[in-house]
Computed example of a mutant assay.
Amino acid sequence: MIVNFFKLKNFNFQKVGKEVLQIEREGLDQLDQYINENFTDTCELIYQCRGKVVIMGMGKSGHIAKKIASTFSSTGTPSFFLHPAEASHGDLGMIGNNDVILAISNSGESLEILALIPLLRYRQIPLIAITGHEKSTIACFAKIHLCVKVPQEACSLGLAPTSSTTATLVMGDALAVALLKSRGFTQEDFALSHPGGALGRKLLMRVDDIMCSGDDLPCIHPNAYLREAVLEMTSKKMGIIVICDHKKNIEGVFTNSDLRKVFNDNIDIHRSHIANVMTPRGISVRPGTLAIEALNTMKKHNITSIIISDQNQLIGLVHIHDIYQAGII
């Protein structure tokens, strides 16, 4: 193919890009009128659904359907995408009698979806249609129709789905968020479906999951000499040692910064007891505390390790590196 570089050099890509944005903005401005009683009916039907929301569409509408299904599923509305053509060849068995169908077709005349309607009506499975034409065949057969008609496509040929797919995607987001709020869906609920991401770890991971405990804990009795405490602290490599009585009740802490002060003050580590140079109590959080909250506490007090305690009894220790390595931030 011969490329006319002179013509390309004089072509205004930015101008066309901005025209596309303007056309799609105008399309979205029109969408407000379709957040009506049909929208309410759709939300109520999905809210009351005892099964899943099965979303289908062909071509570009299929890609939008997949994204909407993903958004629904991650915000408290169990959903999955079903390819209409595959549904006619066995995958229709994936649909349960308690499910709701959400069919997307800009024209409202997708043959692959139309072929399924008799079977859906026979099984009495509710059909919600999202189309750009209120009098289309799919819209007429649907229990509820959501219109997403746009003035024009952003494609200069008026052929490639652009404004229409954007409007459909936004309508799907509006449904998902309306349902999310109506269910009282929380950040913790969201995290349960996103355990692999940083957000999920931030909302789910607790200090109990990453703390060191048992024999790995750097701790020592208050009557121990400073030399013993230093050896214990350096061997555990956490930059801190917790001073506890024989019942693990916390009396204080000793850190690297305290050690530097000891050397500066020429204190004899062989004759001084750790209780004489420790910092009383120390900063602690309870078991079950979110790791991100423990991190915020560490930053607030400018410390690198935090004690996990229950009624002043030592349970564990978390170093700031443990939180970073857990991938929470």
Rank of each mutant, 00 (worst) to 15 (best):
L259K: 01
F254V: 02
G239Q: 03
D245K: 07
P222L: 06
R227K: 06
L217P: 00
R271G: 00
P287M: 12
G288P: 03
T255Y: 00
G214A: 13
L199A: 08
E228K: 11
L290H: 10
D245F: 08
H246E: 13
D265V: 03
M298A: 06
M233S: 03
L231Q: 07
D268T: 13
T279S: 06
S272H: 02
N223A: 05
M278I: 11
N266P: 12
I269V: 15
D265G: 08
E228I: 04
V242R: 06
H246I: 09
S213E: 14
A275R: 07
G252L: 00
G252Y: 00
I274E: 02
L290G: 08
P218Q: 03
S213L: 10
N256P: 00
F254P: 00
M233Q: 04
V207C: 12
V230E: 00
V277D: 04
D215H: 07
D265E: 13
I240M: 04
P287L: 11
L231H: 08
F263I: 15
L203R: 05
A224Q: 02
H273Q: 15
M238S: 02
I292N: 10
P218S: 07
V230D: 00
T297A: 10
I283H: 07
G282A: 11
E232C: 09
L217G: 01
T279W: 02
P195K: 14
Y225R: 11
L217E: 00
L217W: 01
V253R: 02
A275I: 08
N223M: 02
I267D: 08
E251F: 07
M298K: 10
G197W: 15
R260S: 04
M238Y: 04
K237I: 06
S213R: 14
I274A: 04
N266G: 12
L259W: 00
V285H: 06
M205E: 04
I250N: 08
S284W: 05
V230F: 02
R260P: 00
E293F: 05
M298I: 09
P287W: 11
I283V: 14
I274H: 02
I241K: 06
S235P: 04
D245Q: 09
K247C: 09
G196I: 09
S213I: 11
H194R: 07
D209C: 11
N249W: 04
C212L: 13
N256T: 04
N223E: 07
K248F: 10
R260G: 01
G197Y: 15
M205S: 06
D208R: 03
R260M: 05
M205Q: 09
K236S: 10
I243G: 01
K202Q: 12
M205A: 06
L226F: 05
T297H: 03
H246L: 11
M298W: 13
N256L: 05
E228H: 13
H194F: 05
P195V: 13
R201D: 14
N256M: 02
D208A: 04
M278H: 10
H246T: 13
M211K: 13
N276K: 13
S213D: 12
G239C: 03
R206Q: 15
G197R: 15
